[in-house]
Amino acid sequence: MDLLDWHRDRLSARRLTVLIRQLPHDSALNRELHGEAADWSVTDHLLAAAVDHLAAANWMFASVNSEEGDQPEPPAPVPRPSHDEEAAAVQEDEPAPETEKAAPSNVQLARFFG
């Protein structure tokens, strides 16, 4: 398909929009727009969440069943593409208190649920 057909009025704007929206998740355009996040599917996000929850459950079990001075370190979450970008943005602005967790943004929810 020649994209110059859009300028030659052989390809409608609607058809071009449909073709662009139906590109695969790993296409060059999606990688350019979304970076590494384009490689992550809903399955990948769910698997990372399952690994994080399992690590947290194991950490809680070890914390409860260990001596007071022998507490294990909390597990680090699986790095996600959107997590790296937001962590850099948070560090630039102002460090958030460790006790306060921010709710996920609309962009994060849209990426997670596809």
Rank of each mutant, 00 (worst) to 15 (best):
D70I: 11
A37I: 00
P72V: 07
E94T: 00
E100R: 14
I20Q: 01
N65G: 02
V90Y: 11
R80G: 04
Q22P: 05
A89I: 08
S63Y: 14
W6R: 14
W40H: 10
A76Y: 08
F113A: 10
S66R: 02
D93A: 13
P77V: 03
L33K: 09
L33N: 04
V107K: 09
R111Q: 02
D93T: 11
G35N: 10
D2H: 12
V64E: 15
V18W: 10
A96I: 15
A50W: 15
L54T: 15
A57G: 10
V42T: 12
W59A: 08
P72Y: 08
F112N: 08
P79A: 04
S66G: 07
R14T: 03
A49F: 04
E85A: 01
P75T: 12
H45P: 03
P79I: 04
P75M: 11
H45I: 04
T99F: 08
G35M: 07
D2Q: 13
A103E: 05
A62Y: 08
P95V: 02
E36M: 03
A13M: 05
V78D: 07
A57W: 15
L46A: 13
S63H: 12
R21F: 01
L109M: 11
E36R: 03
E94N: 01
S12G: 01
E100N: 10
F112Q: 12
E100W: 14
S66K: 06
H45Y: 15
G114A: 03
Q71S: 08
A102Q: 06
E32N: 09
P104L: 09
G69I: 02
E32S: 14
Q91C: 09
P77K: 05
V90M: 12
F61G: 02
Q108I: 12
R31G: 00
A13Y: 08
L23G: 11
P79K: 02
H83I: 09
Q22F: 07
H7D: 15
K101I: 07
A38C: 07
D44F: 00
D52F: 10
H45W: 14
P75K: 13
S12Q: 02
S41T: 06
S41C: 02
A88M: 04
L11F: 00
L3C: 13
Q108H: 07
D93W: 10
T99I: 05
P97F: 02
S63P: 08
R111N: 01
V18N: 10
A48H: 14
D93P: 02
F61R: 04
A37S: 00
P74Y: 09
L4K: 09
T43Y: 05
Q22T: 12
E85P: 00
E98A: 14
Q71V: 13
A62W: 11
L47I: 11
P24M: 11
L46K: 14
P72R: 05
L4E: 07
G69L: 03
A28S: 08
P79S: 05
P95L: 02
F61E: 01
L33T: 06
L19W: 11
A57K: 13
A38Q: 00
E73S: 01
N30D: 06
R14L: 02
N106W: 15
T17F: 06
